[in-house]
Amino acid sequence: MEKMIEAVNVSYIYQTKYQKTKALSGVSCSFERGKVYAVTGKSGSGKSTFLSLLAGLDVPTEGTLNIEGEDMRKINRDTYRLNRASVIYQAFHLFPLLTVLENVMFPMQLQHVPAKQAKARAQEYLKKVDLPESLYKKMPGMISGGEQQRVAIARAIASGGEILLADEPTGNLDSQNEKVIVELLCKLAHEDNYAVIVVTHNEAVAAAADVVYGMSDGVLSVVRE
């Protein structure tokens, strides 16, 4: 299978005003389409940092990160996030002052999709994540956590990308909702051919993944392939 993302000896150092921290150390791995990858590890192990690099939120201090063979440093990372990769978070990060439907339409508006078309597609994506129509006009603050995360997923796939990154997507959810989200992510990978990369410390989520990497003190190792 074609490697969507390949990390080659990636290291990352956090630089703040007062100190430096090596969050990642010589991480090498690859990610392919059609699979669900779980990156597990304790809090502070560097997995979220790794996910942020995969999302193009920064570039590695050392090593390379290739996106379909192209070095991350050489591509437009904004365009990458707009068209190819999407991220969902534990805290959902929906726009609190836009409705559910408007949240999902947002990436398409950035892609200059006509409003009518964007609305129709947004409704499709919301259907895909099994969100009832009655919630489309609600503000995120008015719906449950599980519903919010589904909206976040719908927004993530609305941009039409191939890579879906998720940072503790079920962290704020109950077990039932957790199951729903995990199923959704698997569906996206296996049916829609997304490369789904999930950062989690949840065993149940990791169990559902096709490949499990373990992160410990910034070092990645394969747990299960």
């Binding site: 999302a55 939120l57 904004d78 365009t79 990458y80 996030r81 707009l82 068209n83 999407s86 991220v87 990060h93 929906l94 726009f95 947002f106 990436p107 950035l110 927004r155 941009s159």
Partner: peptide
Amino acid sequence: KRLAVERLLGM
């Protein structure tokens, strides 16, 4: 936060 999400979404 809003700016972060916007950047996240590719703006």
